[in-house]
Design a protein around this nucleic acid. Structure first.
Lengths: 332, 332
DNA sequence: ATGAAAGCGCTAACAT
DNA sequence: ATGTTAGCGCTTTCAT
């Protein structure tokens, strides 16, 4: 039924070793025999069995990708960057959703190692001690994409979220706002707690503005949650820094529902710059997270580790910038 | 370095076959020896090599997923459905983006077959003859998710797009509109050409309304394209059926830019019902495509084929419905 | 430039 | 209930 390297060898009157050589592009084959082998391959419709190859060579040319939820735009964008570079280097990807569940994450790493992946790209909100332990035990390289490891030991690719937040809030303050709110997803994730919130505080402190806990809205990471939070509060800050485009839109609609205008009464800066940011009115001024690039760079980084190339500092920081549209106006 | 089944066997004083049995949950093992083996596994940190297992058993418990573009919400949602059911049945997924490119699609199938996947889920706008040929040659089952095969030979899971379009347009006409526009993505895809457009025509015909080609706007599948199309035309239909949420939002903003109101002056029905539909104002009335379910059902179907279970009609049609919000008002 | 032969780590008869 | 023995289809020395 299945055509093997033996069948090809017989057909071409050579040994299987020779067939293996032409299949793998080894130059030590006389052109004439190479031609004969190729014809035999064509004639028999031979297709190399990657599993057998993987067993013999101990390389599978596939990498594992662990993602919280592929249906979320944020991660899907990262995944596309990872995938494109993987394809470029001729790797395939085993993709699994973790739902941020530590047990699942650990189990997925185990499964992927069992499948003999050559490397792993991991995305998560948080590297728990258990996860870190598992990663450090891994027999193949692991790199984090858009995921901060507080210890800085695990290779990772990110932007400087804290500075980005700080700059955004500074711009808002620079526009004359004294009451700048922060609307963020759950503060139990590293990025929200140690980067967005801290960057927000940094900017306040830089400007000599007092920190007012009542202006920090910690909500579930969704449009509805932001909207409801705005409906529920009677605070009326004149500026808002939101932790995602979706949160920003929720806030904007909340502001509108309160009879105010964006950006005239309230300026809003978002964080992420998905295509959503251009599809709402007013359009969002947003810190742009280069998600595709983060994915791409992390995969590229992984290829280096898989080839045992020297990589200096394992912590990569990509540049970020702000896209100014209508929800907040800055002159730069 | 790597611990094999032999090492475990030696440690537990049994044969490798026995180890294999306990690893695979074969009941024919005395509890006492099972315990010894498990302890040896634990002690040595043994992890079965899935590649070796795959070579010996000719099953890899991994399936290939070919997707146009994982960064598009439409497909990401399908993918999540596929992934969840795959996980449930203990399959892993090799995920690759095709960008709707026929050559890539064919090459991906080849690669996946080379990796010995047990089955393939394919998504595409269009099953070209070349692709269909490749699929029919596949040594493992292939099922289409959210993808229509005109021949009906290839197993697939969809909704009845044509009826959905027909019903949506009929509702609009029922609201008294005589000029109902269709804003659709490229008409060279099966769904747009043979389902949305035809369903639109069906409804017109049902109601005795003449077909006016000038009311069909074929645009690139994006917010901007819809918006620009609306800016460019001087037709002022009072109702619109849009081929996606994104197109609908573009139309709505175009309508607003023309000084008209939705739904007062123009009623708009979208198609897809992404979370976007609730995040814009007015919120979208939209035909809901059960994308997650389509993905889930197609993966479930694939498991049946992989187990050689009998499946009757290979063409599965899931139910659809309309979610009425603000961009069009219906009383039902 | 080509071939022979030994694994890679496991499953799956078959035997006991 | 447990062990023995062939493979699975390929890569990779090592010879020649």
């Amino acid at each position: 039924m299945t055509v093997t390297i033996y069948d090809v060898a017989r057909e071409a009157n050579v040994s299987m070793a020779t067939v293996s050589r032409v299949v793998n592009g080894n130059p030590n084959v006389k052109p004439a025999t190479r031609k004969r082998v190729k014809e035999a391959i064509e004639k028999l419709g031979y297709r190399p069995n990657a599993v057998a190859r993987g067993l013999a060579s101990k390389k599978t040319t596939t990498v594992g990708v662990i993602i919280p939820d592929i249906s979320k735009g944020f991660y899907a964008e990262l995944a596309r960057g990872i995938s494109d570079i993987a394809t470029m280097y001729e790797y395939n990807i085993i993709l699994s959703n973790s739902d941020e569940n530590e047990d699942k994450e650990i189990r997925l790493i185990e499964t992927m190692l069992g499948k003999q992946v050559d490397g792993i790209v991991l995305m998560s909100d948080q590297i728990s001690p258990g996860l870190r332990e598992e990663i450090s035990r891994s027999t193949v390289p692991v790199v984090l994409a858009g995921t901060v490891d507080e210890t800085g030991k695990i290779p990772s690719v990110n932007i400087d979220y804290r500075s980005a937040a700080r700059e955004a809030v500074a711009q808002l303050i620079g526009n004359g706002h004294q009451e700048v709110a922060l609307v963020t997803g759950p503060l139990d994730t590293t990025i929200n707690r140690d980067h967005l919130l801290e960057g927000y505080k940094d900017a306040l402190q830089d400007a000599g503005v007092g920190y007012d806990e009542g202006l920090v809205f910690e909500v579930e990471d969704s449009y509805d949650a932001a909207l409801e939070a705005w409906h529920a509060t009677d605070r009326r800050p004149t500026a808002v820094f939101a932790g995602s485009d979706e949160l920003a839109i929720g806030v904007i609609h909340g502001v509108m529902d309160a009879g105010q205008k964006v950006p005239d009464d309230v300026e809003v800066v978002a964080f992420e710059n998905t295509k959503l940011s251009r599809m709402v009115r007013p359009r969002l001024t947003s810190v742009v997270l280069p998600l595709y690039d983060i994915g791409a760079v992390s995969m590229r980084l992984l290829t280096k580790y898989m080839n045992n190339e020297e990589v200096g500092d394992p912590t990569f920081i990509l540049p970020h910038r702000m896209e100014v549209r209508e929800s907040a106006k800055f002159n730069d």
